[in-house]
């Protein structure tokens, strides 16, 4: 029967083909657990399939997950050691954040490009990995490379310096509403001379709009590591002082609230350079030194700024024997 023969032929050729396969199969068969999945013993009820975690999550976050992982490793693996080396930060007042849950706005004074990194690595969990930075659009987002890096490392969104634009404000508010905290430097730019600049209203505006508290933060020392106009950093001790969260009062205007944030940061600055109780005493008496420093000529501003700086003596006090 030719037909059968034909089938036979096909079968034999399949067999022949198969004969060439076994080595590969044998190889596969040789591998064992844990290199292949375990089988379930007959007497054991198989485990029900695990619920997909992702299904519970907002899809918007899910899309960002790889980036969040990458940022986690960048923050912990690169930024933190760099900051630790350059800034040797001492963090004070973290206990004031103990009661916070949900998103907040971290508002700090601004001396240096290091500030954002220092601040992010100083934040307590869970804020540290659930935070974005408002970064100057004209500086951080002017080229594609810088924009990508800023977005990845700092989770930054672009904010216009001069006025809070509608688009960026909406984006920031949206993220805050989604549970993200924001880092902002209300001065709008780095200090040119070491003294502060007046706070702009953006932080206060967003806090009122989203109904979240503002944590005033004072950074001391970064200006001397990487001040404006310098490219090579010089390691210095820094102090990050967290203040108690403040909320806008009922019906408070954003300018008034902004002024309160600024004086809170000023009080922290006072606290960081003297001690807490003296700072509270001056704050109560309305005598907290202004962040912007004395309104006077440039030399007197510098003079006053360096008055309480402790400069470690480089001279050996005792000859080494």
């Amino acid at each position: 029967m030719g037909h059968e023969k034909g089938l036979e032929k096909v079968a034999s050729s399949v067999r022949a083909a198969r004969a060439k396969v076994p080595p590969v199969r044998a190889l596969v068969a040789q591998t064992t657990f844990p290199y292949r999945a375990p089988t379930t013993p007959l007497t054991v009820e198989p485990k029900p399939a695990e619920q997909k975690l992702l299904g519970h999550y907002d899809s918007g976050w899910a899309r960002k997950l790889p980036a969040r992982y990458a940022r986690f490793f960048l923050t912990e693996g690169v930024v933190r050691p760099v900051i630790a080396g350059l800034a040797q930060p001492e963090r004070r007042g973290l206990d004031r954040l103990a009661d916070l849950d949900g998103p907040v706005i971290f508002a700090a004074n601004h001396h240096s490009h290091l500030d954002a990194g220092l601040l992010i690595t100083s934040l307590p969990e869970p804020h540290r990995h659930q935070v974005f930075a408002a970064a100057a659009a004209d500086y951080f987002f002017d080229t594609r490379v810088k924009a990508t890096a800023s977005a990845l490392v700092l989770n930054a969104i672009p904010i216009e310096r001069t006025k809070v634009g509608r688009r960026s404000a909406d984006e920031a508010a949206g993220l805050i509403d989604d549970g993200w905290s924001m880092i902002i430097f209300p001065e709008g730019g780095r200090s040119p001379d070491g003294w502060g600049q007046p706070f702009r209203g953006g932080a206060a505006y967003l806090a009122i709009r989203c109904g979240v508290p503002v944590v005033p933060i004072h950074l001391a020392g970064t200006g001397r590591i990487l001040p404006k106009g310098k490219n090579r950093p010089k390691p210095q001790r820094t102090v990050v002082t967290f203040g108690s969260p403040i909320r806008a009062d009922e019906g408070e205007r954003s300018q008034a609230f902004s002024d309160r944030i600024e004086s809170a940061v000023a009080a922290l600055a006072d606290e960081a350079t003297t001690d807490w109780y003296s700072a509270r005493r001056r704050a109560a008496a309305g005598e907290t030194p202004a962040l912007a420093g004395p309104q006077s000529g440039a030399w007197r501003r510098t003079w006053a700024l360096t008055a309480n700086r402790k400069r470690p003596s480089t001279a050996k006090r005792w000859p080494e024997l």
Binding site: R92, G93, D95, E271, D275, W276, Y277, S278
Partner: peptide, 8 residues
């Protein structure tokens, strides 16, 4: 707390 300790 550190603030009170350092102040007094």
């Amino acid at each position: 707390g550190d603030r009170v300790y350092d102040a007094f």
